[in-house]
Design a protein around this nucleic acid. Structure first.
Lengths: 185, 185
DNA sequence: CGCTTATATATCGATTCGATATATCGAATC
DNA sequence: GATTCGATATATCGAATCGATATATAAGCG
């Protein structure tokens, strides 16, 4: 997750550790802790995925190696990667690096995930509403209603993105039923 | 965080570990890993905040002790606790256990946090829009627009909750300008 | 020069995760 | 009633992450 973010940012341009952190925060992701950041940089360097490009004082700027670019490309469309919001947002921020033909796959997978979440949220809300006076208080109820609304908004947003994507790639828009996406492990 | 959730759920009724996990998932929180759950239970038991109420086989039901209830009450309005979405949602789910006079404080703090996030998101979007053709691609732009919209929706939702709360406690609704909230560290 | 603040890298202990191992129970099958 | 099997339940392990803290360097200022 963090390694993916580092690779993606370094792909744009060389940066040093502190700058990676600042950029992630500026882009609206999260303020990664130093206890995560520097060990992650070391891991990547040790694995040969990034390398020091220049150094002034203790300020080391890193760049992505060829192996790093390959690894990054694999992660970008890895179906087994985490499904949380942050992971998806990161992938979206780097989606331009993914093969245009498979960008829709990433969006569709996220959509499917959100549809499932919505179903769970709706179910909980329904069960809760039935026994409101019992143990489900109004705060929990409000929480669940908001969860449903948020999931719906997210799905609508994804639908827009997918539609835009299809409009630019008519060959898939006319025949979106490519269900046989399986391709071994 | 997890310990807070466990205390809150056990306050409602005794449960065993697996049931705690299931309940958290059903309520729409997260599927906590066993590697987090059972060590957390042990910590709480060791600290005397929870205790085994009954056992059938290896299935141990826990209850909250008096010390546990006190600790839970402290956590409920602890200003230094984490500010992420999950932490707030948990507190909201247990807000009924908090002194009605201070419930608004929790909601207001969350609102302030979201307002700040919105400002950051708006700023990033503005800076990004200025140089769209440069390095900000449409995916990143879409991400930021969505971030702004989500934050706005969250704030509107919180405003509703706060208004409802004030309507039920008119003594604070008439004089909401209690700015002197500082009280040492 | 000496003081403060911002920048930058690094490390520590605790918490959480994901994977995996192990135990128990009930229902189905023989 | 013994056995197998899947669901339930507890436990543990290594790795990733966090929050706090330590330390070094550079920049600004009297």
């Amino acid at each position: 997750m963090l390694e993916f973010a580092i690779l993606g940012l370094l792909r744009e341009q060389p940066r040093h550790g502190y700058e990676l952190r600042r950029t992630l925060a500026d882009l609206g992701f999260w303020s990664v802790s130093f206890g995560s950041l520097y060990p992650a940089i070391k891991r990547l360097e040790k694995a040969g995925l990034i390398a020091v490009k220049s150094q002034s004082g203790r300020r080391k700027s890193y760049r992505v190696t060829r192996e790093g670019e390959e690894h990054f490309a694999e992660l970008l469309n890895d179906e087994t990667m985490a499904n949380d919001e942050r992971s998806f947002n990161l992938r979206l921020a780097f989606l331009r690096y993914l093969d245009p033909d498979t960008r829709i796959d990433v969006l569709e997978r996220r959509r499917a995930h959100m549809v499932e979440r919505l179903a769970v949220a709706r179910d909980a809300l329904k069960r809760g509403a039935e026994r409101t006076k019992e143990r489900m208080d109004r705060y929990t109820l409000a929480l669940m209603e908001h969860g449903v609304a948020s999931a719906e908004a997210d799905i609508a947003w994804l639908d827009e993105l997918i539609e835009t994507e299809r409009a630019e790639r008519p060959q898939r828009a006319t025949r979106p039923r490519r269900k046989s996406t399986r391709r071994g492990t």
